[in-house]
């Protein structure tokens, strides 16, 4: 008998009042449909009104932790890059 390991999938969920999909974890599934079903059972606990994204872990490209300085350092030491010097109007809720 052949036994096949299911590939790993990363799960992103937008909750009912959420603005963006958030990574919530990973799980194993044979294909995308099954990953959606499994994500429903493992992560949503049937909260109505959620949106689910599943993506094969193998399809995600992450940065090399060794590149942290060239990638992120410039932002941290140039404060003028951060638009925090003016008051935000009340009406603009989420930026």
């Amino acid at each position: 008998m052949t036994k096949k390991e299911w590939p790993l999938w990363e799960i992103f969920i937008r909750s009912q009042h959420g603005l963006a999909h958030k990574h919530v974890g990973s799980l194993h599934a044979a294909d995308a449909d099954m990953a959606i079903n499994n994500a429903r059972d493992v992560y949503t606990r049937r909260n109505e009104g959620v949106s689910l994204w599943v993506v094969r872990s193998a399809d995600i490209v992450a940065n090399d932790p060794n590149d942290r300085e060239p990638l992120f350092e410039p932002a941290a030491n140039k404060v003028y890059r951060h638009p925090t010097f003016f008051p935000m109007p009340e009406e603009v809720k989420h930026m």
Partner: peptide
């Protein structure tokens, strides 16, 4: 047979 199936059956 798999963690995911276990959760689904329990659900």
């Amino acid at each position: 047979p798999a963690l995911e199936e276990d959760m689904a059956l329990a659900n």
